[in-house]
Design a protein around this nucleic acid. Structure first.
Length: 438
RNA sequence: GGCCCGAUGGCGGAGUGGCUACGCACCGGACUGCAAAUCCGUUUACCCCGGUUCGAUUCCGGGUCGGGCCUCCA
């Protein structure tokens, strides 16, 4: 059975057939680097990482591009707030992001382009849109002429009238049509800007992805992914810009992951349930976060709870115990079928429960789990935990107590360690091993 | 108002026109000085109302509830 993926464009699962069978090309919308990424941002990173790993298994070459948006008004505002140079803010935030996603077990994309490195391409694309009659200049802005594109709204399934009727934002007076959106806007002296035929300014929100995707993947490519909130307006506008500027089809398969809620509520700053990846990593191993995320289907809502994280950790504990030193066997058909069915990772995990160790190892390798020694997994230091020497000393003390039949003392030592998050396990032959856990 | 999702056991979460998925938790047993880990076993479900059908959790229609988008948003 071939890989089938749900395409937002058609709202159907379709057999995936890359334009070039020897080279799959995929673009995923990355972060705007003005603040710590939150666990909602982690979901597409993990989901598309799983997809890339799966594609790499089936195709000789996969190019995975995930951008860094380092030009954006929120960045400017934050830098002013912190009173630091914009470049310092974006670089620092990008580094934190890289560390976070690696801690989640995600491989680095092949290319991580930055907007600031693509200004000539952005300006050229806008100029092209003007030349082709799809954009116009007005009061220092350049706007995309939405009525000039006949298929506009196809991805999000809304027509222009709906959008205007539902508009929550005041329409700028210089727009020819209320649905028109900004490609380029003027910058004042205090705002980052680049020279252009329309004066010193900066790009609008959507054009950077069109330009960077074209620069690294060509005008038409296979997969474009992101959170479902990007369907409109971001991806709709990307399609408009790219199709009109390139006069060629843009993306074959559009993929969108569902939202993350926290204890059943949408994460938002106003609700105060905003959880950064960094904070989450202080409480749970990255691998547990990765597993908890993939235990739900990527298009379903995912509710972030501590219980889900603990459960994922318990699953990983079991796998690490079972698989220490086991070599990978053949990947089972049932697992392949689940993965091929629109990346049905929950079903894949169910299949994995039934497997012998070598087959299970093969599955975990593909998904990027259990890639370190069991000892490293079980004994990885948590925040503020006891160090290894102290733990070993306590174990020796308990061993002596046990030999003296002073079980009360032995149990007290074990309980004290447990309070510090260290669990002891007595093995046959008087050996005691320890692990960090609940 | 328009558009789009979803509703399965204590929790998470697949799937199927008839044959109790699975995991976690719980409970019982084995093992252990006692635990932990492991092994064995038990228990719990398909939102509501119609329709189609020999039979529906699964298909169709209606409803209820929940979530999302409608130019900040993964």
């Amino acid at each position: 059975m071939a890989l089938r993926l749900y395409n937002t464009l058609t709202r159907e699962k379709e057999i995936f057939a890359p334009l070039d069978p020897s080279h799959v090309r995929m673009y995923v919308c990355g972060p705007t680097v003005y603040d710590y990424a939150h666990v909602g941002n982690a979901r597409p990173v993990i989901v598309f990482d799983a997809l890339v790993r799966w594609l790499r298994r089936g195709y000789p070459k996969v190019t995975y591009v995930r951008n860094i948006t380092d030009v954006e008004d929120k960045i400017n505002a934050r830098a002013r707030e912190l009173n630091i140079p914009i470049r310092e803010l974006t670089e620092r935030t990008a580094q934190i992001y890289f560390e976070d996603v690696r801690a989640l077990g995600c491989v680095d994309p092949d290319v991580q382009p930055r907007v600031t490195d693509h200004m000539p391409q952005i300006v050229a694309m806008i100029a092209g849109l003007i030349a082709l009659g799809h954009a116009y200049e007005a009061e220092g802005h350049v706007l995309f002429d939405v009525p000039s594109m006949k298929d506009y709204g196809r991805l999000s399934r809304r027509d222009r009238d709906d959008m205007i009727a539902g508009a929550r934002v005041e329409v700028a007076p210089y727009k020819k049509d209320p649905a028109d959106f900004v490609l380029w806007k003027p910058s004042d002296a205090d705002t980052p800007g680049w020279d252009s035929p329309w004066g010193r300014g900066r790009p609008g929100w959507h054009i950077e992805c069109s330009a960077m995707a074209k620069a690294h993947l060509g005008v038409t490519f296979d997969i474009h992914g992101g959170g479902l909130d990007l369907i409109f307006p971001h991806h709709e506008n990307e399609i408009a810009q790219s199709v009109c500027a390139n006069q060629a089809p843009f993306v074959r398969t559009w993929m969108h992951n569902g939202f993350v809620t926290v204890n059943g509520e949408k994460m938002s700053k106003s609700l105060g349930n905003f959880l950064t990846i960094r904070d989450a990593l202080a409480q749970h191993p990255g691998e547990a976060i990765r597993l908890a995320t993939l235990k739900s289907h990527y298009r379903q809502p995912f509710d972030w709870t501590d219980q889900a994280m603990r459960e994922a950790r318990a699953n990983l504990d079991g796998w690490y115990r079972q698989l220490d030193g086991v070599a990978a066997g053949t990947l089972p058909d049932a697992f392949v079928e689940a993965m091929d069915d629109d990346l049905n990772t929950p079903r894949a995990f169910a299949v994995m429960q039934t497997l012998a160790a070598p087959a299970l190892r093969a599955c975990l390798d593909v998904l990027g789990f259990c890639q370190r020694d069991a000892a490293a997994w079980f004994q990885a230091g948590g925040p503020g935990g006891l160090d290894e020497t102290a733990i070993e000393a306590e174990i020796e003390r308990r061993k002596a107590a046990k030999q003296a039949k002073d079980f009360a003392l032995a149990d007290r030592i074990r309980a004290e360690l447990a309070e510090q998050g260290v669990v002891l396990e007595d093995k046959p032959g008087g050996v005691t091993v320890w692990r960090r856990g609940a």
